[in-house]
Simulated assay, not measured.
Amino acid sequence: MDTDTATPPVRGGLVYRDAVAEDVPVLVPLIESAYRGDASRAGWTTEADILGGQRTDPEGVLAVVTTPGSRMLLVERDGETVACCQLEHRGDAAYFGMFAVRPGLQGAGLGREIIAEAERRAVADWGVREMHMTVITVREELIAWYERRGYRRTGKLSPFPYGDERFGIPQRDDLAFELLVKDLAPPLG
């Protein structure tokens, strides 16, 4: 089902729509500002102490926007882009990533609303039963926030791509990703 309509859905004063290629120049700096550099320190999701360099680039965001089975959910308030997140259909699950809320707006419940909408859309559009994400294991505060939203740690780790600056420049040598999972639908049967 295509959720990008002529009149995007409004929930809680926020307008949600699927991003298009023309949105990439707005999305890249939004994502960067939520994770890297001094601007990210205005919010609580910063990775500035563990990673330098870039979080993403225009090619990476464009790939999310244009790849079949993938979308970048763009969130606007009063005509201004305030947040975004990646959703990717992976069989019975959806992958949630590139979640960014403008740093000055973090901590006021906006993220909670957006993740709930992303989960709702993943179920409605793809019929998935789970949402998956990966989080850097040293991000304990962020993992705790996701746990309060119903995500559980799996203990399944994947290595951080050291040496690939497209993912940032590590400031420490103990980085890894952990898979977090949330059940979105009641069990079958």
Rank of each mutant, 00 (worst) to 15 (best):
141 E>R: 15
16 Y>E: 01
68 P>F: 07
179 L>T: 15
59 E>A: 15
16 Y>V: 01
112 R>Y: 08
118 A>G: 14
72 M>R: 07
128 V>D: 10
44 W>G: 13
168 G>A: 00
22 E>R: 15
178 E>S: 09
175 L>D: 04
184 L>I: 09
152 R>Q: 10
124 A>N: 08
49 D>I: 03
143 I>K: 08
74 L>R: 11
113 E>Q: 14
56 T>V: 00
127 G>A: 10
123 V>G: 04
9 P>G: 03
176 A>R: 05
130 E>L: 06
150 G>P: 02
53 G>T: 05
123 V>C: 06
139 R>V: 02
76 E>F: 02
140 E>F: 12
127 G>P: 14
105 L>S: 04
32 E>H: 06
25 P>A: 12
82 V>N: 00
28 V>W: 06
184 L>S: 09
69 G>Y: 04
187 P>R: 13
38 D>F: 03
12 G>P: 02
53 G>Y: 01
104 G>T: 15
64 V>H: 11
83 A>K: 04
182 K>A: 11
80 E>Y: 05
167 F>S: 02
62 L>S: 11
165 E>L: 02
28 V>C: 03
34 A>H: 02
144 A>P: 06
49 D>K: 05
6 A>W: 13
136 I>G: 07
96 F>H: 13
18 D>T: 12
152 R>A: 11
57 D>Y: 00
160 F>M: 00
164 D>G: 00
67 T>K: 07
180 L>D: 13
187 P>K: 05
20 V>R: 15
158 S>W: 01
90 R>W: 14
143 I>R: 10
124 A>L: 12
82 V>Q: 00
177 F>C: 02
77 R>E: 10
140 E>S: 13
33 S>L: 02
33 S>I: 04
135 V>I: 15
39 A>T: 14
97 G>F: 11
106 Q>M: 08
153 R>C: 09
54 Q>V: 05
67 T>S: 15
158 S>L: 07
47 E>G: 04
32 E>M: 06
121 R>Y: 06
84 C>D: 00
139 R>T: 01
8 P>R: 07
132 H>E: 14
38 D>N: 09
167 F>W: 15
122 A>S: 15
185 A>Y: 01
158 S>N: 03
146 Y>T: 12
137 T>R: 10
73 L>H: 00
39 A>W: 05
72 M>H: 07
111 G>S: 05
142 L>K: 08
